[in-house]
Design a protein around this nucleic acid. Structure first.
Lengths: 131, 131
DNA sequence: CTTGACCGTTGACTATACTCCACGGTCTAT
DNA sequence: ATAGACCGTGGAGTATAGTCAACGGTCAAG
């Protein structure tokens, strides 16, 4: 099928599909016929794009999704391998949440040197330098 | 003082300081004298850079830090205003953590359709398309 | 005078995930 | 024949937060 149909079936723009093609996430399609240079995308490419959308919905980056597609390509997309990558992402998310929590704690802890109820002064200790 | 000294006192590279100057986080310094075009940074600029470092340590972006510096510039850096912006960042962090939690839940929920213990198949339902 | 370090400026580059534009070609309905 | 939509390609742009290189000038110690 042509890129316009692919776009309709996947909900991705033509430019996005071309971008993914360029990035190697989907195979470069072959020319449709000798009269023009239109590409003919396969049903397998359609399936890959739907998987890409699904994984993006889970929060995976395109590089991470590329790893999944690599598993499929080498016939190693077993539930064991796939779940392992999923759990790896969960660990990354956990790590990010921990970092955010630490940030939050630092900010809330820093508010100890604040006195919001006092009348307005123009020099909160948080934005002044203590020597 | 010259940019080299500023760099030493703040721990920021010369390029970083010039980058902040260009972004308007610190004022453009005046020429030191008529014999060269070296800049002369003020002690106030040193203080601003230390505050920038402090806020970056809390996880604020340069745009958010610019807001703090704006408060100082307009003499409105009261504890009320500053703590308000700090708490605003805490809310952003909370929102991000919620999004990450949802991502995590989606991923873990999706593992329901996985059967990692089964013998290796090459087609985990998570990376195949259900029509 | 020479050398090494300093200074200033401008532009390019890094990664991410697209989006848009310009240009030229093709297709199809009217 | 024409117009509007489609197609392909290459390049530029978006924001973030710097980092690096190239080029030319200045400073100070030896």
């Amino acid at each position: 099928m042509q890129i316009g149909q692919l776009s309709k079936k996947t909900g991705l723009s033509r430019d996005t599909i071309r971008f993914y093609e360029k990035k190697g996430l989907i195979p470069t399609a072959l020319k449709q016929n000798e009269f023009n240079s239109y590409k003919n995308y396969s049903h397998e490419t359609l399936e890959k794009l739907l998987i890409i959308k699904k994984m993006k919905g889970f929060g995976f980056t395109l590089n991470e999704i590329s790893d999944f597609l690599g598993l499929m390509e080498f016939n190693t997309a077993s539930c064991e391998n796939v779940s392992q990558k999923m759990l790896e992402k969960v660990r990354l998310i956990d790590k990010k949440m921990k970092e955010l929590n630490e940030m939050k704690s630092l900010i809330i802890g820093s508010l100890d040197s604040c006195a919001p109820e006092e009348s307005k002064s123009t020099s909160c200790p948080l934005v002044s330098v203590n020597f």
